[in-house]
Simulated assay, not measured.
Amino acid sequence: MAEICILTPDSGGNAFAGRTENELRALLGTDVRFQPWTAPLGTGDALVLPLIAWGYQARADDWSAALDAWEAAGVPIANPVPLIRWNTDKRYLFDLEAKGVPVIPTAFAPALSDTDLIEARARFGDTLIVKPPISGGADGTYRLAPGDPVPADARGKPMLIQPLMAAIATEGEYSLFYFGGAFSHAILKVPSAGDFRVQEQYGGREITADAPAGARAVAEAALGAAPGDALYARIDMVRGADGGLRLMELELIEPDLFLSHAADGGSLFAEALRARLRPET
């Protein structure tokens, strides 16, 4: 059996999964296989990565059950299951904030209501972003202009509330990538005109970039505050009104790694995996 197993979307599929599979296959060679994250996993693989397990947020209960099953069976998951479980719910931002990491100001509403929006606008300003705590790819994420009511799909549901960060439109969102604890590369993601979402499916695009001043300090503070060591990580951040960078998300489950933007073509990522596979001496 192949040494490395990479988990992919369930039967619902994803328009970009095939492209990413091809990129990883070209980088890692024949010792890699792919299977849906919903399929049973054994312990025959030396390492399992949920790198393309996109869409798990739509099946949160199944995802939680899968994590429990993998942990109980001793499946060698990277990143470790306890770290993935913590990272699944974006309320981890409050943990990082408590440890001094500069994060985007965030409130949590257990059952989103008009009162929650009133309180958030008093705290954050008139234009808000609301999103589920378990989400991905901007699914279920809304931009609420001044006076906009609670979206029907979000009313009464647990939601995170944040201010709209103006720099998303004027500068973009930075992503920094770390493999085996070492910095690899950075990109700048920009939305299409008039949008706030930087994902490709919404017209966003990415540009190879140098990490701006202070970005690596924010990224490394976030990684250091996480409850476990990450073999791979993407750290998303945006500039605040004060000019400082603030963490948007710490992506430790299934981040697009944008390896085509890495100067080494992904060699550091491949070496981090090989180092994990080599027996200790």
Rank of each mutant, 00 (worst) to 15 (best):
M1W: 13
M1S: 09
A2R: 04
I4N: 03
C5F: 03
I6A: 02
L7N: 04
T8N: 03
D10T: 07
A15T: 11
A15D: 15
N22S: 15
V32G: 08
R33C: 15
F34A: 01
P36M: 07
W37G: 00
P40K: 08
L47A: 02
P50E: 01
P50K: 01
A58W: 06
A60G: 08
D61Q: 15
D61V: 11
D62W: 12
W63E: 00
L67E: 01
A69R: 06
W70C: 03
A72I: 07
V75T: 08
I77Y: 00
I77W: 00
P80F: 01
N87T: 11
K90N: 09
K90R: 13
R91I: 12
L93Y: 08
F94N: 04
L96T: 06
P105A: 11
T106M: 11
T106N: 09
A109N: 03
A111N: 11
L112K: 00
S113G: 13
D114G: 15
T115K: 15
D116V: 07
E119K: 11
A120V: 03
A120Y: 02
R121C: 08
F124K: 07
T127H: 06
I129S: 02
V130S: 06
K131V: 05
K131G: 03
P132H: 04
I134H: 04
S135I: 04
A138M: 08
A138E: 02
G140H: 06
G140W: 02
G140R: 02
R143S: 14
P146D: 07
D148T: 09
P149E: 08
V150W: 01
A152G: 09
D153N: 13
G156D: 09
P158T: 09
P158C: 07
L160Y: 00
I161S: 00
P163I: 03
L164H: 05
I168W: 00
I168L: 15
G172R: 01
G172F: 02
Y174W: 15
F177K: 03
A182L: 11
S184W: 00
S184H: 04
A186S: 14
I187Y: 03
K189C: 05
K189N: 04
D195L: 11
F196Q: 00
Q199A: 06
Q199E: 12
Q201F: 14
G204N: 10
I207V: 13
A211C: 10
P212Y: 10
A213K: 14
A221W: 02
A225D: 06
A226F: 05
D229R: 15
D229Y: 08
A230K: 03
D236M: 06
V238W: 01
D242T: 12
G243I: 10
M248P: 05
E249P: 11
E249S: 10
L250Y: 04
E251D: 13
E254H: 01
E254V: 00
P255Q: 13
F258N: 10
D264E: 12
D264C: 11
G266S: 04
G266W: 01
S267T: 14
S267C: 12
L268M: 12
F269V: 05
A270N: 05
E271R: 14
E271K: 12
A275W: 11
T281D: 14
